[in-house]
Design a protein around this nucleic acid. Structure first.
Lengths: 242, 242
DNA sequence: AGCTAGATATGGTCTGACCTTTTATCAAGC
DNA sequence: GCTTGATAAAAGGTCAGACCATATCTAGCT
């Protein structure tokens, strides 16, 4: 990253650590399509022979690819390193680490989420299918049922599912990933709080229904306002512990 | 992630690989504040003794923390593993991998960026200081100068700097990170294209100035419209190769 | 047919050695 | 006195080879 306004960009020229080269070769095959999700890489020992490096180097490369969410390791015969499908998990972990490093705060994350929704809801209003809106409706119904049954533990998970569905309505995978990541982090923290504060259930249901109505009306402005208001209240109830 | 609406969430209970446990211990010290940016971890060999595991396990743990962007490794005496400041680099790489895995497309990423700006600009209008707006103004001036000097190579970097400054105006670190990540990926791809297409320079400058005027007027609606229009045009010029 | 006990391939870990890089130290020379 | 060069020490990086744990297949027994 070069936030400064300098003319030329020098990239760190080194990086001849063996494992990084190995890593690079595998990533290159991924980028050019020679490798894709589901494919299996050669066994570590074989790869070590083919690339003429030690198994340790191969292992560090595979480890870093695993941590990066690119491959999944399986043990046993028929095991090995398999190219994964993309998952939002890695992004969540990166955000989590950024929080632990003190680079970002939970409040900022919440706000970022609100900002994302500010740009996302117009897209949702434009593109959501009736089936997707029905799915959202079903989620609200499930939430209502859970509340009626006194099953408070389900609330966060249903909320998470709600926002996931909402993200899907944007019909944009990148947004879905970002949304899921942000949402997942916050879910984690909410699950940590034992008494599950949050807002009154009735208000929650009512807000959801209003939001859905605006979505069905394809009224992006009102939908955004409704959701923003809700998230702000939620945020206050959760973090400002007032 | 549990996008499905299931009642309880079972987390994969395993994870007794040694290096993950090591990793977890270090991350725990990070989460509880015992470790922070700048701190140096014990040497690998020492850590291996302290935790009673082999150096290989320690190395895989440190490698995964390095890949995760949590630590930085330095060689030589006085070297070691140091806790890093948070950087957006990791998030960029995750997004990059998601692109290579085919999970998201460049077009979707651009759109996600537009969506983020849709929610961000109102915040910018509300919070940007005069100094920050002046910095943006300076960037536009630098861009104008670069174009006058025929220095086309600088354009992408100045644009990147522009959006970074814009993100900073939101006064929200999480948004800055997200914005920088998205922006960085797109910068990479733009730099790959040799002829540097893009839109006419005059239009670019004019659009930037209009945007700045709206920001100074604290008119979020017009600013968002202006930026969205600009990004859409940019997007078309770059990717639809029309 | 179904089950059980090996065989086997694969990742995971350990040990111990050596290489490379970085820094500190110190001596020689200007 | 200052620079310059050689040397030593500490740390990560790599290598080789062994062994362990686990998942799958296969052969053989019941």
């Amino acid at each position: 990253m070069a936030p400064k306004q300098q003319a030329v960009q020098f990239q760190p020229v080194q990086t001849h650590r063996t494992f990084e080269v190995v890593c690079g070769q595998i990533r290159a095959k991924l980028a050019c399509g020679e490798l894709g999700p589901g494919d299996k890489l050669p066994a570590e020992r074989l790869l070590a022979l083919q690339l003429n490096v030690s198994r340790s180097a191969i292992r560090e490369a595979l480890r870093s690819l695993e941590v990066a969410g690119v491959v999944r390791m399986a043990k046993g015969i028929k095991g090995g390193a398999f190219i994964r499908e993309g998952t939002p998990d890695r992004m969540s972990e990166v955000l989590q680490d950024l929080i632990h490093l003190g680079a970002i705060s939970l409040a900022e994350l919440t706000e970022a989420r609100i900002a994302l929704y500010g740009g996302m809801l117009p897209m949702v209003c434009e593109r959501a299918t009736e089936a997707q809106l029905d799915a959202l409706e079903a989620n609200v119904a499930a939430l209502e049922a859970a509340i009626r049954n006194g099953d408070a533990a389900q609330r966060p998970h249903l909320a998470h599912a709600f926002y996931h569905l909402l993200g899907e309505c944007s019909r944009n995978s990148a947004i879905v990933y970002l949304n899921d990541s942000l949402s997942h982090i916050l879910l984690q923290y909410i699950l940590m709080q034992s008494p599950q504060p949050g807002m009154p259930s009735n208000d929650l249901i009512a807000s959801r229904r209003r939001l859905l109505r605006h979505l069905r009306d394809r009224n992006a402005q009102k939908a955004t306002d409704e959701l923003r208001k809700h998230l702000r209240r939620m945020h206050k109830a959760l973090w400002e512990t007032g």
